[in-house]
Simulated scan of single mutants.
Amino acid sequence: MPNTDSTRRFGDRVADYVRYRPDYPPALMAWLRDEHGVSPNWLVADIGAGTGISANMFLDAGHEVVAVEPNAPMRAAAVRWLGGNPRFRAIDGTAEATTLGGASVDLVSAAQAFHWFDADAVRSEWSRILRPDGLAAVYWNSRTLTGSSFLEGFEQLLRDYGTDYAQVAERYEGDAEMRRWFGAGFRGMTSFPYRQRLDFDTLRGRLLSSSYAPRAGHPQHEPMLAALRRLFDATEHDGIVDFDYRTRIYVGSVAA
């Protein structure tokens, strides 16, 4: 059965997550800086930080980052990768109970994780930990579902073989829902195109990094990989397929 506890859900696929999950387009950081005044002296709480992909983006921009992650294997992977940076630390906490002090951070970052949170509880917690002029940035890579034979075939593969793909896909919020969540504090939203160019091995790893992809030993695992091979062979160009996304971001202040 799929693991429905979001704090443990990815614990058995950390290595694939580290190697094959996409990062985020540079335009995202530029937009935060130019449109919302997010500067390197802002302390960032990266909530649901996972293996550190989003934390690394903020470190590269000069920020101090505290990564809040309840999944021990994922948190350990982030520490192995980023722990040598003096501007990085990782703590065991959840989006709804971060353990951070009140009015202690300038920016809450939630990358690829908001759909797992209790939306009402995080509003209260983020309001508590943000400084009076602080902001929250909620963003994720939204996989493009149509536009090429590969993209459409990959979507069908997930629907055919994913353990609980449909339920997870339905958890993502839309623009209207995010506007409502921020309420009067909503400051803006935008999106950017992003692409991974994958050979078969990296495509396989990208698939297996998903929590709804059946693992080895599951009766759907081998049939899923055989279907992936057929899809790749039918759609690759020069040994590569284009795995396309829209990176969506929403920014605002948060009131309890």
Rank of each mutant, 00 (worst) to 15 (best):
L208Y: 07
R204K: 06
Y194N: 01
L145H: 05
A227C: 03
Y17M: 00
E170M: 13
A72N: 02
R171T: 14
L231W: 11
G50E: 02
S148H: 09
V108L: 13
D133T: 11
Q156N: 13
V138K: 01
S209G: 05
A61H: 02
R171W: 14
Q167F: 14
R8C: 04
R13W: 11
G93N: 03
A119Y: 15
P214L: 10
H237M: 07
A72F: 13
V105M: 01
T202H: 05
E236Y: 05
A169M: 07
E222W: 12
M224H: 08
W42Q: 03
A227F: 12
A255F: 15
R21H: 06
S191P: 02
L32S: 02
A136C: 13
L208R: 05
A67I: 07
Y194E: 03
Y245E: 02
S191F: 15
T94L: 04
E177T: 09
R131Y: 13
L208E: 07
E170R: 07
D46L: 05
Q220D: 08
P70R: 01
L107T: 06
A27T: 04
H36Y: 09
L32D: 01
N141S: 07
R131K: 07
D199H: 04
R9I: 15
P193A: 08
S211R: 13
E35G: 03
L208I: 13
A169L: 07
G101I: 04
M224C: 04
P132V: 08
P70Q: 01
M189C: 12
R9L: 13
D233G: 10
A78M: 04
D133C: 11
S142V: 10
L32W: 10
D164L: 12
R229E: 11
T144G: 08
E155P: 10
S148P: 04
E170I: 09
T144A: 08
A27P: 03
Y139V: 05
M29I: 10
I91H: 09
D175P: 03
E236V: 05
P73K: 01
F117Q: 01
F232Q: 01
G84F: 12
L151Q: 12
Y139L: 06
G134M: 00
P193D: 14
A255H: 12
D120S: 09
F182N: 00
V251H: 00
E35T: 11
D92A: 11
A227K: 02
F243S: 02
R159N: 12
Y165F: 15
L59H: 06
R21M: 07
